[in-house]
Design a protein around this nucleic acid. Structure first.
Lengths: 154, 154
DNA sequence: CAACTAAGTCTTGAAAGTGAACTTAGTCAA
DNA sequence: TTGACTAAGTTCACTTTCAAGACTTAGTTG
C-alpha cells in the first residue's frame, strides 16, 4: 500500500497518521508546543533537511494543524502557529513523551518536565474515561464497530 | 540528521519516535491491540510490504514492545504479543485515534468505538493530571527542564 | 552598492519502501 | 514418497523519499 492511500482508509488512526505519521512531523509539533514558530528555528533546532521541513509545514498548514501568520509586513515574514486542531494533538504528544520518559530516560530522570499550572505540580498524563472519570486500563477497553464502520473492517 | 541518530537524542519524544515513529509501526500496533498476532495477518490487514513488516516486528521485539511467542511446536510457529511496555502505548494510540475521530470521521461518526468495560460506556480519553486529577488544558501546561536535561536543550 | 536576513527551492547521491517471486521447514492426503 | 499446502520470512528489481549543502528571492540596512 502506498502512503497516499492511507488518508482514504476508514480507520481514524490511519487518517491521523496520514497527517502526522511520518518521521519528522511530531518533532515539528513538539517544537511548536515549545513555542518555536519560524522556519529557520525549526530547521536549526531539529536538524531537519530544509526541503523536508518545507513539505511538512505545508502539509500541516493545509490540514489546519498549523496556521501561517504574518509577523512582519515589510519584508513579508510568516510564522507557524498551532491552531485549535493542532492543540488537540497535545494529549497524544504528552502520552508519547511520558512513555519515553518511562522507558528511555536515564538514571537522572526525564529531560523535560511538564508543570500543570492549574495545580502547580509536575505531572504525568493519565488517560481517564470521559464517562466515569476513572483511569482507564488498556485491558478494560473493548473496541467495537461504530456508526461509521465499513462493512469489512474498522 | 539521520534517523538512527534520533535514539541518541535527549528528548523523550525523539527516543519514542525512534521506536514507533515511522509510517507503519503505529498501524502495526493498532492491529496488535485489535488482537492480531501473526505475520500473515498483519501483512494482509495492513497491506504492508512483507520486508518492511519483518523489519518493524523485529525492531519492536528488540525494543521489548512486542514479544515473540511460540504458539505451535511442530512446525515451529510464532506470534507477536504486546508486552507491558507495549500496553503502555495505549493512551497515546487512543489519543491519536480520538483526534482522528474528531477531525476526520464522516457524517456517520467514527468507525470504531471504545467501550470502557469498568463502567460500560463508550468513551473518549481525557488527559488528566496525575497530581490533581483534573482534566488538563494544553495552555495550562508549562514545560521546564527536568533532572535529565542536557545543558543546551531539552 | 554590498552585505545581510528569512524563507524557502534545487541538486545529487544515499537510504528506505514497494510488490512480486522465491525459500525454508514442516504437515498432510493420496 | 511424492506432491500440494502453510506460515514466516528473504531476495530482487525498481521507485520514492531523504540528507546535506548550495542557490534563489525579496526586501532591509550600513
Amino acid at each position: 500500500m502506498r502512503w497516499d492511500d492511507l488518508s482514504r482508509e476508514h480507520c481514524s488512526l490511519a487518517r491521523t497518521l496520514s497527517v502526522i505519521g511520518d518521521r519528522w512531523t511530531l518533532l515539528v509539533l513538539r517544537e511548536a508546543f515549545l513555542r518555536v514558530r519560524r522556519f529557520d528555528d525549526f530547521q536549526q533546532s531539529l536538524g531537519i533537511a530544509r526541503r523536508v521541513l518545507a513539505a511538512r509545514l505545508k502539509l500541516l498548514v493545509d490540514e489546519g494543524v498549523l496556521k501561517k501568520v504574518a509577523y512582519e509586513r515589510r519584508p513579508p515574514r510568516y510564522e507557524y502557529r498551532l491552531t485549535e486542531k493542532g492543540l488537540g494533538l497535545y494529549p497524544a504528544i504528552v502520552a508519547l513523551v511520558h512513555w519515553g520518559d518511562e522507558h528511555y530516560a536515564g538514571k537522572k530522570g526525564p529531560p523535560l518536565l511538564h508543570r500543570h499550572l492549574t495545580c502547580g505540580h509536575d505531572f504525568r498524563s493519565v488517560m481517564t474515561c470521559s464517562e466515569c472519570g476513572e483511569a482507564v486500563d488498556p485491558r478494560e477497553v473493548s473496541p467495537h464497530a461504530g456508526p461509521g464502520a465499513a462493512r469489512k473492517r474498522a
